[in-house]
Amino acid sequence: MNNNELATALTKMLTLRWSPVAVKLVKPGEKVPEKVTQPSVPLRHCQAITLARRGNSLYMPPSRHACPDGAAIMGLVPMSPKLRSGELYLLFKKLPTIECAQKMIATRQEFEAGTYAATVLAPLEDATFEPDVVIFTMYPEQMMWLMCAASYSTGERHNFHTSGYNSTCADLTVQVMKTQQMNISFGCYGARAISDISDFEAYVSVPFQQLPTLVGALEKLSVKSIPEARRRIYMPPVIDKVACAEPVGGNSVDVRIDSNQCTGCGLCEAFCPEAVIRMVTMDGKQTASASAAEKCCACYTCAGQCPQKAIQLTVR
């Protein structure tokens, strides 16, 4: 898949509001990609991501970087002594002691000064280059599905390395390039103060080489898991006023199955975690029967999975 196809698939399956942003760090002497322009004013890396997700393709040498900390972290320029010491973090009241600031600096990922000569950013669909990483601005639900896609073939859980400092430069760009592992960020002082990321959004960064695999996994998740979760298929009919004035014992659940609606597909039996439902033959037809209703835990999985909406649960 090319960049445009990847972006189109991701936007459709995840219902993205913003374009995924392709980010490349250009080495000294490396050819500048086509169809990118220098911004008219210096920008922070997080601001450049904002502009790129809105449709701009940018070429940013050191002179176009407004944040000296971010430019140094990405290996474009040397780190100034005041930034390296952590002094500025105390002046901004971000951390209480110089020891805390130095520990934060020592544990973040950086590139050595001079490793790179510029950054290039573009909406993934318009990128004329192969990105190092692709950065998403997403809602938590969309982030969850990207996590699921990353685990789809392995079942592995994720460990993220992040903080509230240097989010887009260190956590989303350098960290992901060095480790070749997906990472998340909730933004930082700069990213929240000078970009339009909403209070309900966060970032995910993915190594570009992993994107086709993620798209393939999302295609499989889009067959069943994603649409079912978005339809809230396990939501009970009433979930308000659940508090009881008096302590009560165990609940009993009335499991009603409309045999006229039931087609005998067997999904309810397969998905029931407590083996409450089994398939029986009635009048020569396979149908579901709540043969062990006393074990029902009211998880609503059977009702949610039933394609005919033939199952109704009533908790007493």
Rank of each mutant, 00 (worst) to 15 (best):
A9P: 05
L10H: 03
L10P: 00
T11P: 00
L16N: 08
R17C: 01
V21I: 14
K24F: 01
V26P: 01
G29Q: 09
K31W: 00
K31F: 00
K35C: 04
T37N: 10
T37L: 10
Q38K: 14
Q38I: 01
V41L: 13
Q47H: 09
A52D: 07
R54Q: 14
G55L: 07
N56Q: 15
S63N: 09
H65K: 02
A66R: 13
A66I: 11
A71R: 06
G75E: 06
L76N: 03
V77Y: 00
R84T: 01
L90N: 09
F92L: 15
F92C: 05
K93N: 14
K93D: 15
K94P: 00
E99H: 11
A101S: 14
Q102W: 04
K103Y: 11
I105Q: 07
A106C: 03
T107C: 03
E112Q: 14
A118H: 05
T119G: 15
L121Q: 07
P131A: 13
V133Q: 07
V134P: 02
I135R: 06
F136N: 03
M138D: 01
M144P: 00
W145L: 06
A149W: 08
A150D: 12
S151R: 12
Y152P: 05
S153D: 15
E156F: 14
H158M: 11
N159E: 14
G164A: 14
Y165T: 11
N166G: 09
S167P: 02
V176I: 07
M177I: 15
K178P: 03
T179S: 15
Q180R: 14
I184C: 08
I184S: 03
G187K: 09
C188K: 04
G190H: 03
A191Q: 04
R192V: 10
R192E: 10
I194A: 07
S195N: 14
S198Y: 06
V204N: 02
V204C: 13
S205E: 06
E219W: 01
E219A: 12
E219S: 12
S225I: 08
I226H: 08
I226T: 07
P227M: 10
A229W: 03
Y234A: 04
P236L: 11
P236R: 06
K241N: 15
V242N: 09
A243W: 08
C244G: 02
A245M: 11
E246S: 12
P247G: 08
G250V: 09
G250F: 07
D254H: 14
N260D: 15
G264I: 08
G264L: 08
L267I: 04
C268E: 07
F271I: 15
C272P: 06
I277H: 04
I277E: 11
I277L: 15
I277D: 10
M279V: 13
D283W: 01
K285Q: 12
K285C: 04
S289R: 09
S291K: 03
K295P: 00
A298T: 08
A298H: 11
Q305C: 02
K309C: 05
T314G: 02
